[in-house]
Nucleic acid binder design. Structure first.
Lengths: 140, 140
DNA sequence: ATAGTGCTTTACGTTTACGTCAACGTCAAG
DNA sequence: CTTGACGTTGACGTAAACGTAAAGCACTAT
């Protein structure tokens, strides 16, 4: 049940690789979820015959996808974001486009940041009031 | 088209009130969305005859709902959270339950906070690399 | 009186993000 | 050579979060 190196890794000149079951377990999702992300073009694992072979790159992407999900972004939007990281940046127009996109994303993320900070602050305030109430109960 | 006080407010001894169209516009959602939240029990506006009448309390809740959505929480979970703020806290057991819930929420929010901060940091790093590329183009 | 504007409910449609079979391929172990 | 364990592709199902008519009530303005 613990990591069995003989099956957990399959040697390759490009480094370690994983099966779908392994990445699914590692990220605590189902294989169906992983395949769904592939259907939407968010990851594209290597094929060895008919089998999917996942590399570190795929794991990185999967991590980005799941974090994006926790932040409430739809998968389609997540795709455009992580594609951005691999986008061609050779020509000036391409680079300027990418920088524009980065700015849009940042604006969005900064709104999220404010949202989380506000929510945590309000929760703290609410907790303080509750502890006050609790103190009054003790006092009597 | 600007704010018309004669229709924007309807006097009441409990302060200003709004129609469904007004709150929908104020929060940039459709009336259908507002009614959907009511169906799920997230808001419960006053009724005057058959018409819905929204008070400041309802606007506050709507703000919390939309912020929760931006953070990726499902509506059902949002309902339990904002209900928590109005939950009875008279008895010790109730207070302790509420404090427990607060802690759970905070854990969740702190994960979100890390997610956003990480995402912003990575975006910044990526932007730096892009600007480097751009600089190299200028240099040549 | 009638037309218009805004609100109401009812109800079916749609999109997203998977879950859940079904049916079949493949490879090592017994 | 058959039996598992694991992998594969459809294909249909489902829950959440609304969208989108359809059809009717209430008030106001002409």
């Amino acid at each position: 049940m613990t990591s069995d190196t003989s099956t957990a890794r399959r040697s390759s000149r490009t480094g370690e690789t994983w099966t779908i079951a392994q990445v699914a377990e590692a990220f605590d999702v189902t294989h169906r979820t992983v395949r769904h992300y592939e259907d939407l073009g968010l990851i594209s694992p290597e094929r060895r015959g008919t089998q999917r072979v996942y590399h570190r790159r795929d794991r990185t992407r999967l991590g980005l996808i799941l974090r994006g999900k926790r932040l409430g972004f739809p998968l389609e939007e997540i795709r455009t974001i992580i594609d951005l990281f691999d986008a061609p940046r050779g020509r000036r127009t391409q680079l300027e486009y990418v920088l524009d996109q980065i700015d849009e994303r940042r604006t969005d993320l900064e709104q999220r940041l404010r949202d989380v900070q506000d929510a945590i602050a309000e929760l703290g305030e609410f907790e303080r009031r509750c502890r006050d109430d609790l103190g009054r109960l003790d006092h009597v």
